Amino acid sequence: MSFETPVSASPPAERVTVMQGQALASSSPTIEYSTVLGSCVATCLYDPENHIGGMNHFLLSEPPANAPGTRIDEHYGVYLMELLVNEMLGRGARKSALRAHLYGGANVNRNMMRIGSMNAEFAREFLRREGILLMREDLGGTSARRVDFRPASGQVRCRTVEDRFAPPVQPTPRPAVARGDVELF
Rank of each mutant, 00 (worst) to 15 (best):
L37G: 08
F149E: 02
D73C: 11
R114Q: 08
R159L: 13
G116S: 05
L60W: 15
L80N: 13
G53N: 02
V161C: 08
F149Y: 14
N66F: 14
R110A: 13
D47F: 12
G21Q: 11
Y103K: 09
G105E: 03
L83K: 15
G38M: 14
R124F: 06
L60Q: 13
A106N: 07
L59Q: 11
C40R: 00
R174P: 00
R114H: 04
G140R: 11
G54T: 08
T142Y: 08
L83D: 12
F3H: 03
R99V: 09
Q20P: 04
V182W: 02
S2D: 13
P6V: 09
I115L: 07
S61T: 06
T35K: 02
I72T: 15
L89M: 08
I72Y: 09
E137L: 10
P167T: 13
R94E: 14
P63E: 12
H75T: 11
Y103L: 14
L45D: 06
Y76R: 04
V108S: 03
E87C: 14
S61V: 02
L37R: 06
G116D: 08
N50A: 12
R94Y: 10
H101C: 15
Y76A: 06
H101P: 02
G116R: 03
H57I: 07
A166H: 04
R146Y: 05
I31H: 14
E62W: 09
R179P: 03
A93G: 08
V108W: 01
V85D: 10
L60I: 12
R157L: 14
T5C: 04
G180P: 00
N111D: 15
S2R: 11
R99Q: 15
E125V: 05
F126A: 10
S117P: 00
E14N: 00
Y103F: 15
E162D: 14
G131S: 02
L184P: 01
T35S: 14
V41N: 15
P11M: 00
A67I: 02
A67N: 03
F185K: 07
M19S: 08
R91M: 12
F122W: 06
E137V: 12
T160K: 08
S96Y: 00
R110S: 12
I72G: 05
S34D: 05
G90Y: 00
Q155N: 15
M118D: 10
L83E: 14
N86S: 13
E32K: 01
Y103D: 15
E162P: 01
G180W: 05
C44H: 11
R71D: 04
A25T: 00
Q170S: 14
R129H: 07
A93R: 07
P63C: 10
A106G: 08
P151F: 05
S153P: 01
M1S: 13
Q22D: 10
D138W: 09
T30Y: 07
G53S: 02
N50L: 03
T172F: 08
F165N: 11
Q20F: 06
L184I: 13
S26V: 01
M112N: 05
R164V: 15
G154F: 09
N109L: 05
A97L: 01
F185L: 06
A42N: 03
G53F: 03
E32P: 00
S61G: 07
P173A: 11
R146P: 02
L89N: 04
E62G: 04
G38E: 13
P173H: 06
Y79P: 01
T142H: 10
V7G: 01
C40E: 07
T142D: 12
A120H: 03
